[in-house]
């Protein structure tokens, strides 16, 4: 069952009379990595949450190729600051599987496999909230991928991580992409955006100011604000 494409039609989010997002028209097709960039407060997180279905739309619509319930079960989200359950590393990995009724033996296999992939095999019994920032981020990513989602949303997964930790995360993301996971990621790291993106969105003031394939986006930006943003100028 393919849940894609996702179609946003005139999607708008307003809170307390203020427009946070929209109107946004966007189709998210199958395959690849879409990177979302834009200044602070431009609406990247809100856009991701709208796509994932955890932010209520004030108007417009967001539709997957299948009914929402089926689509929900096949998506995962890694939040801007990783949410650790107050349990062990193993229990955090196990949690999504347990929620969806995966057999205990299969849970064990998956937990062992993913702990190894993120280098936490020796920390299975460590309380997750005690992990370092980088380890938490990796754990949050593994916990998102362990349920084999078809679409993975990430909100600045490498904010405040150093180079090595960032590369480790990017490695996991490439593996996921190669395994067919559709990735949508917000980031402030332009190097990372170039390294991972197949196509990119530039969000400005709650709307999508530019959407293009990687090369066009980074090398021949059309929107003047994107050109200065890529230049490192301050854009508001």
């Amino acid at each position: 069952m393919n849940i894609l494409p996702l179609r946003l039609t005139a999607a708008e989010v307003r809170r307390r009379g203020k427009r946070l997002l929209g109107p946004v028209d966007l189709t998210l097709g199958t395959g690849g990595v879409t990177v979302i960039v834009g200044p602070n407060g431009s609406g990247k997180t809100t856009l991701l949450r709208v796509m994932h279905g955890v932010e209520r739309l004030s108007s417009g619509s967001a539709n997957w190729a299948v009914p929402d319930r089926d689509a929900q079960a096949r998506q995962a989200f890694v939040f801007q600051s990783p949410i650790m359950l107050r349990r062990s590393v193993a229990a955090n990995l196990r949690y999504p599987l347990a929620l969806h009724g995966v057999a205990r033996a299969d849970q064990d296999v998956a937990v062992t496999e993913w702990a190894a992939k993120i280098g936490l095999s020796d920390a299975l019994t460590t309380p997750a909230p005690r992990l370092s920032g980088g380890e938490r981020q990796k754990l949050a990513l593994a916990r998102a991928l362990i349920g084999k989602p078809q679409v993975l949303f990430l909100d600045e997964p490498c904010a405040s991580l150093d180079g090595a930790a960032t590369l480790a995360i990017e490695g996991l993301l490439r593996d996921a992409r190669d395994a067919g996971v559709r990735i949508v990621m917000a980031t402030h790291d332009m190097g990372q955006a170039r390294r991972l993106a197949d196509d990119a969105l530039f969000v400005l003031g709650g709307t999508i100011a530019e959407a293009a394939s990687r090369d066009r986006f980074f090398d021949r930006p059309q929107h003047p604000a994107l050109a200065s943003f890529l230049n490192g100028d301050i854009v508001t």
Partner: peptide
């Protein structure tokens, strides 16, 4: 407040949220 986004994102049922 801590768990809200994660549990919603994981589609936990009301009962599962309470138990968690």
């Amino acid at each position: 407040a801590d768990y809200h986004d994660l549990l919603i994102s994981l589609n936990a049922t009301k009962r599962q949220r309470i138990m968690t």
